[in-house]
Design a protein around this nucleic acid. Structure first.
Lengths: 115, 115
DNA sequence: AGGGCTTATGCCGATGCGCGCATTATGCAG
DNA sequence: CTGCATAATGCGCGCATCGGCATAAGCCCT
């Protein structure tokens, strides 16, 4: 019947790693890049520049962060780098959060109508 | 056979809301507060101060942010405010990410041993 | 090797935010 | 009404990071 069983507190180190991961997703630019990659499959940097309007250096940096975290992978095609989403987890997380945002708005709407 | 079906890109507004949500979890202090609340059930601010070592003002601010996002709820007990986790989503997200971090480390370990 | 690509990196200003101190606001007891 | 406790807020410092510009580094072609 216990809805939230007692559990040990996460170690400070785990806390840092979790928050570092969420921080990666806390930047609209990075999230946008991930969504573009999911939408377009595998894309090179030029396409990402055109799709997002960001500068080349900015995109390079953000992709670097995402790659170090293993969220995107890249392979060479001659001089170009082709990036792609490497982990479906981000999409799952976004869907969960989006569903939650929607539910929350619907609830607020009902409360307004209940007046 | 399509592993990632084509989908419409999220609007800039949704992108901002998603990233804002993840930003809430991108701070170790907030994550720690959420974990403490999950661990202790419902706690007042004094207990949180003792458990985390943060200043009263800091905790008040962080709880305010979490409450505005609907992640924690609070009720009065006389002059004290008792906070509690209001949404199991955060715990789910953390578990997903934690599992992923673990898998990633195991994979890196295997790659080292394969040498 | 040299020139023309594409990507990564040093630098820097602007911005945001964590976080404590001091103060104010809010509820309770006398 | 006056203290007394607790929680919220104004203020300020410090630090991290975003994001563009300029430059360096890496790859391909002749």
């Amino acid at each position: 019947m216990r809805r939230t069983q007692p559990q040990t507190l996460p170690s400070p180190q785990l806390l840092d790693e979790l928050s570092a991961f969420f921080r990666l997703l806390s930047e609209p630019a990075r999230l946008q890049l991930l969504c573009q990659l999911k939408h377009g499959g595998a894309m090179d940097v030029a396409s990402l520049i055109e799709a997002t309007g960001f500068s080349q250096s900015h995109i390079s940096r953000q992709l670097g962060q995402l790659q170090r975290a293993g969220l995107v992978s890249c392979e060479r095609d001659g001089v170009r780098l082709i990036y792609a989403v490497a982990d479906p987890l981000v999409d799952d997380l976004c869907n969960l959060v989006q569903r939650r945002l929607k539910q929350r708005l619907e609830q607020q709407l009902r409360q307004l109508q209940a007046v």
